[in-house]
Design a protein around this nucleic acid. Structure first.
Lengths: 144, 144
DNA sequence: TTCCCATAGTCCTATCAACGAACTATAATA
DNA sequence: TATTATAGTTCGTTGATAGGACTATGGGAA
């Protein structure tokens, strides 16, 4: 008698699978120095640049962790820190052209995964899954 | 115009929320020395004990990582290593009574989360979500 | 049997992620 | 102006992770 796995664990399994695939896709495209945590942080950067503390909040990590990740991203040439014209204490983290080149590859793999999942589940169930997950986010994502 | 988040990211958000809640619940019940990774490994232990390499495979981590996690679990009194009577090379990782006391608390929080999610989504949508996730596992979980 | 290779687990080492605490500089407010 | 809040960094520590090399045991082939 098999115990039913919690929905959260099932989500963990599939989301990890997806994260690994995106990570591997980036590696193959010449972005092998990016890690999953770094990529996740980078995804939170707005086109005009984003403050470190905002990035930390979006990724739900401490400021110190974000500092360390941005340090590595900067050294690898993915982001740059520029002064925030509206606040002398703050700096904006901005993507460089290298990061902008990586994004489409990540998005492409995301789309590929999404299509495979849709093909496996069928269009309608995939749609229901998306809606349920989006709805669930309202009570599981403290930062909207 | 907001870009639709990938389903995998939505899963990541909710699964992390659940993992944090279970982790915090265990902390409050006197199991504050358990980490999320250690708990996850422990969940893979069968009643009669399980080989380290099997645990590593189930958690999808390297043997060395599993060794390190079991070391910590052993030092904290959650598991013990006993000889495998069927294979002189192997040892079985078994839960101690302390671990067995922790399990119900984790399960209880899991159930609480599951109920809240069901209340939020409605019984039918929650059921559809579960089924879709279970089905998806067939193509996202390399170890069944 | 004996020999060779596979397997189970560990040790060593290195890297990454993560964060509490303390600190500096700037902004905002009383 | 003095005080307090905020943005970000630095320091130090812990945990997770894995590559590579190693030991001991098991299993199959000659």
């Amino acid at each position: 008698m098999e115990r039913e796995l919690p929905a959260s664990l099932l989500m963990f399994i599939s989301s990890r699978s997806a994260a690994n695939r995106i990570f591997e896709a980036l590696q193959k495209q010449g972005f092998g120095d990016l890690t999953i945590a770094q990529s996740r942080l980078m995804m939170g950067i707005d086109p005009e640049g984003t403050r470190l503390s905002v990035l930390a909040e979006r990724a739900q990590i401490a400021k110190q962790t974000a500092t360390a990740l941005v340090d590595k991203l900067e050294r690898a040439g993915y982001v740059e820190r520029v002064a925030d014209p509206t606040d002398g204490r703050a700096r904006l983290v901005r993507m460089t052209s290298r990061a902008k080149k990586a994004i489409p590859h990540a998005r492409a793999e995301e789309d590929r995964i999404e299509r495979e999942w849709r093909a496996h589940l069928g269009t309608e169930r995939m749609q229901l899954l998306r809606e349920a997950l989006t709805d669930l986010r309202k009570i599981t994502d403290p930062y909207q």
